[in-house]
């Protein structure tokens, strides 16, 4: 009891020196992030509320013009073009993320059932394609889906595309490109979740009267939830803002929000409109993250869900 009066101040002094230490370590990174992320973000936001100048550069006075245009109100009255682009982005994100989940689950599970010495090699095979530049891989898909290729001709045979047409440009090609591109980002976190799972638990579930489907749903799936949510964040957010894949595989009717924004900073030249699009993207991302967090807590991912 005698030392209790001394201890708190000694402890707080230790904590002060520790936090000062921590501050020193974190400071360079924090400064970097402030200068190159936070400040430009504020600049971008302010641009969104400015007027479009003659050469597409932002000018005073402040206005909500670009948000109106983003909502579809142009010189010729309202058009649904931008709204369609937004909905298409959401749709593509949902569909491709869903497909990635369906494809990644069996792959991740299969790898964990392999012998331990094969697992790193299998994971490598999953990851290796992403070491090649995304643009080059997307060009690869263009060659695979172009008119006259076996895939395109097979699709023609089935009557899916008109004669002499390829499978791209199309929304289908964009979905395909997104699924292909983001698969590793789902397989890896799911693999990590599966690897932690004791295989005896699957057998225990079956032993306790769960059919294989119910054993997966009640015993396996809840335990892979942290991995799944991490995977969704890694896939859905970049997919929503994707530029390269819809640009190369989508054509005019496959445009996504990322292309809309990019066009305002290059060809179309309307910085305020581009900035408004970027803000919309940011808001949508935050809403998505918040929803994931809620879902994660609801489904009982526990403290492991750190999004």
């Amino acid at each position: 009891m005698a030392y209790s009066g001394v201890l708190p101040s000694a402890r707080s002094r230790a904590m002060v020196s520790e936090s000062r230490h921590l501050l020193m370590t974190v400071a360079p990174g924090a400064v970097w992030i402030f200068i190159f992320l936070v400040l430009p973000s504020f600049y971008l936001m302010s641009v969104a509320f400015m007027t479009n100048g003659t050469y597409g550069l932002p000018e005073m006075p402040l206005s909500l013009e670009s948000f109106k245009r983003l909502a579809g109100f142009g010189f010729l009255g309202w058009s649904a073009g931008n709204l369609f682009t937004l909905l298409r982005s959401l749709w593509q994100t949902v569909v491709s993320t869903g497909l990635v989940i369906i494809i990644a689950y069996p792959i991740a599970y299969y790898i964990t059932t392999c012998r331990e010495k094969w697992r790193p090699i299998m994971l490598l095979l999953v990851v290796v394609p992403s070491w090649t530049n995304q643009v080059i891989r997307t060009f690869g898909w263009m060659n695979l889906l172009a008119p006259g290729t076996p895939l395109a001709e097979f699709a023609q045979m089935l009557g899916l595309v008109p004669a002499n047409m390829g499978l791209y440009p199309s929304n289908f090609a964009v979905t395909l490109g997104l699924v292909y591109n983001f698969l590793p980002f789902m397989v890896l976190p799911l693999y990590a979740a599966f690897e932690k799972l004791d295989h005896a638990q699957v057998q225990a579930a079956q032993d306790l009267y769960a059919s294989p489907v119910r054993a997966f749903w009640h015993a396996v799936f809840p335990q892979t939830l942290p991995g799944l949510l991490a995977g969704i964040v890694l896939v859905a957010i970049p997919a929503f803002g994707m530029y390269v894949i819809p640009e190369l595989l989508g054509g005019g009717k496959g445009m996504m929000l990322g292309n809309l924004v990019a066009n305002q900073f290059s060809g179309g030249s309307n910085w305020p409109l581009g900035a408004a699009g970027a803000i919309l993207m940011l808001i949508a991302t935050f809403i998505g993250l918040y929803a994931m967090r809620r879902i994660g807590k609801r489904l009982g991912g526990g403290e492991e869900v750190v999004i």
Binding site: D198, Q201, Q203, A204, A219, Q223, G300, G302
Partner: peptide, 12 residues
């Protein structure tokens, strides 16, 4: 029913 060596309790 089985009592497993690793117990195989469901951690979730």
């Amino acid at each position: 029913n089985t009592v497993f060596q690793s117990y195989a309790l469901f951690p979730h």
